[in-house]
Design a protein around this nucleic acid. Structure first.
Lengths: 204, 204
DNA sequence: GACGTAACGGAACGGACCGTATAGACAAAC
DNA sequence: GTTTGTCTATACGGTCCGTTCCGTTACGTC
């Protein structure tokens, strides 16, 4: 376990790097958000606190890397389905399964919590982490518009707020378990609202 | 300011009570969630820490009372409109304005954050604070069904998740400012999905 | 082969906050 | 007049914060 893992010289030690992320993830799953402190992570990882602060300026930054590491290996790529609507449903469903079935859900809950106390963390969450997902989801909606699945000028912002909002709300209230077909039905309803003349259609 | 406010005898001192709530609210608006500690609230209120812990077992409980006090005086009663759809839009809009224009928004953000670290706080948030609002919103949907505005057996849970979820998502990412008519259009879309044969219609 | 550089773990720091315990002043309730 | 319960004040041991200094290690360079 606690193999002596000293400096390997002039370079960042990748073992230390992953040991810290592993320790943070383990504490997160075992004790939840309250159990994760920089001090506890350092203890558990067999690392020094200065090492943590050298690479992660805040707890939020550490949690985000824990999350992103999981995400990279889990949500590699979703195959394109028959329609943008199905793609959207598959994406939302896979995010919610990812949150429910891996430590990433607890990590993301913690990141959102941290963002309520730390303005810099909020900006990073909103303008970097979320922006990526929203951009790819918005691209799906534009493809849907081009394919005629929905009207030509959908209010993508509002539609995404409803879709991601539902997922956040479920995550943060610990209600991620879904009835079958819930997500496809929600997506269908949002797409229905974006049919020509519908409430999600913008003029112009 | 710091009038000597000792015990008034065998009874709870209402001045102390409100002084603590005032102090918590002031810290919340001035310094945000991170600035609110039981210690700081006690200092600011000119109260003793044991007094705080006597009446509020946790920071979450204190924050919830700060929130509820504001809510009681602000969202007293919404007049019934011409349709359940308009009532729902008015309710959602008034909640978001309440969050945006009063310290309650910061309080609610803090409560959600606290709930991610404290399981008891999560239960109280979900099963008491939220349950009330969801119950009255579900009643609106039932009235809509009876009035024929939507189909007879709407999936109220999913509809409410989409509506409240959007509001939460905006609050927690500091994006509460809305384009005009956004909320009515979202509500219209959700109601549209609940028309007979729509994705929000349940069998039976 | 020697040296500068940078990462590493360990120990310690002052400070803030946690939740609790104790003590004494106070006035209502009985 | 005694009991009861609330209030302030202070102090406690503990945890965590973010930082500093230290001695060690070995890479990259000369």
């Amino acid at each position: 376990m606690t193999t002596s893992r000293a400096s390997i010289g002039n370079t960042r030690n990748p073992e230390t790097h992953s040991a810290v992320l592993d320790a943070a993830e383990a504490l997160l799953t075992e004790k939840g958000y309250a159990g994760v402190s920089m001090e506890a992570v350092a203890r558990r990882a067999g690392a020094g606190k200065p090492t943590l602060y050298r690479w992660w300026p805040s707890k939020a930054a550490l949690l985000m890397e824990v999350y992103e590491r999981r995400k990279a290996e889990a949500l590699a790529e979703l195959p394109a389905g028959a329609s943008a609507r199905e793609d959207m449903a598959a994406m939302l469903e896979s995010i919610m399964c990812f949150w429910r079935d891996t430590p990433a859900g607890q990590a993301f809950r913690s990141i959102v919590a941290e963002a309520q106390a730390d303005p810099a963390a909020l900006r990073m969450l909103r303008d970097e982490m979320l922006a990526r997902g929203r951009a790819s989801a918005a691209a799906m909606l534009r493809r849907a518009a081009e394919a005629g699945e929905i009207g030509p000028n959908p209010d993508t912002e509002l539609m995404l707020d409803a879709l991601f909002g539902m997922a956040w709300y479920r995550l943060l209230t610990h209600r991620l378990r879904r009835a079958p077909d819930e997500v496809p039905r929600l997506v269908a309803a949002i797409f229905l609202g974006a049919q020509p003349g519908g409430p999600f259609c913008l003029p112009g």
